[in-house]
């Protein structure tokens, strides 16, 4: 009995001393990649990682309102920068991934023609993420503005974040959607057109450690892990460009 109690006590202390639990806020486009990274990070260090996802704008507000996140992996560099200057972060943001915008359709195979299909009237409903809160939505808006401010034959549907936007297209509720390449690389269905980089500002995605992680070495460890070659290859696998 005494031995059991000692074992339990020991495992409890060793648990709290060595294996920590961190919460990371992740922009919707990076959710799948972040979960994959979390798995290899846990295997390597024993630290548990909880992933919460949403649009970058929403996560930004939640953090400013005291949400208990240790790290933020955003879909832009502006908001992490702002959190840093506003004193919510302990370090300067670094770019962990550069995202690519694609126009994706489940059923329209001629989506690969890109600009031509946008100028034809085969798209009846087009989904983009909310340009105010989702950086990929902002990029999509830039593409639309650059291509054809005048001509618009479709109805524009707005997703709350890039994950919902993709869901609209994957469920067939819209004909096509501007989403992150990362969302489509693992989906065997559908057709996509990689939007030329000249049509939108580069989507540099920044990561920061937040004040909430002040006494958590695990948060620092994850931050370093994010810059490792192992993490980079995972991130590239999901369709991002890394430095």
């Amino acid at each position: 009995m005494k031995a059991l109690a000692t074992t339990l006590l020991l495992s409890f202390f060793s648990g709290s001393l060595f294996a920590d639990n961190i919460r990371i806020a992740v922009a919707s486009n990076f959710t799948a990649a972040a979960k994959a990274l979390a798995v290899s990070f846990t295997e390597r260090t024993g630290h548990q990682v909880q992933v919460s996802s949403g649009s970058t704008g929403k996560l930004y507000i939640q953090i400013r309102q005291g949400a208990p996140f240790d790290l933020l992996l955003a879909a832009d560099i502006e908001r992490p920068q702002r959190l840093h200057t506003e004193g919510y972060a302990t370090n300067r943001p670094f770019i962990y991934a550069t995202g690519q915008l694609v126009l994706w359709s489940r059923d329209l195979s001629n989506i690969v023609d890109g600009i031509d299909i946008l100028k034809s009237d085969s798209i009846k409903r087009l989904a983009i993420a909310n340009a105010k809160t989702a950086p990929y939505g902002k990029a999509a808006q830039q593409v639309l503005d650059n291509l054809m401010a005048t001509r618009r034959t479709w109805k524009l549907i707005r997703g709350d974040n890039i994950a919902q936007t993709y869901q609209f297209a994957a469920s067939g509720n819209v004909d096509a959607a501007f989403v992150a390449r990362a969302q489509t690389v693992l989906d065997k269905r559908g057709y996509s057109w990689a939007v030329p980089q000249v049509l939108y500002n580069p989507i540099h995605q920044g990561a920061i450690i937040l004040k909430h992680a002040a006494n958590k070495p695990a948060a620092n460890a994850f931050y370093r892990f994010l810059q490792s070659d192992e993490a980079k290859s995972v991130i590239q696998h999901y369709g991002y460009i890394t430095k």
């Binding site: 649009s55 704008g57 929403k58 507000i61 989904a127 909310n130 105010k132 809160t133 109805k155 524009l156 549907i157 707005r158 997703g159 709350d160 609209f168």
Partner: peptide
């Protein structure tokens, strides 16, 4: 809804949208 002004952007969604965009 899909957050379309004049078609599906009702008040509750408008509030959400305003809060999210500061």
């Amino acid at each position: 809804g899909g957050n379309i002004p004049g078609e599906t952007k009702v008040l509750s969604i408008a509030i959400y949208d305003y809060v999210e965009s500061l």
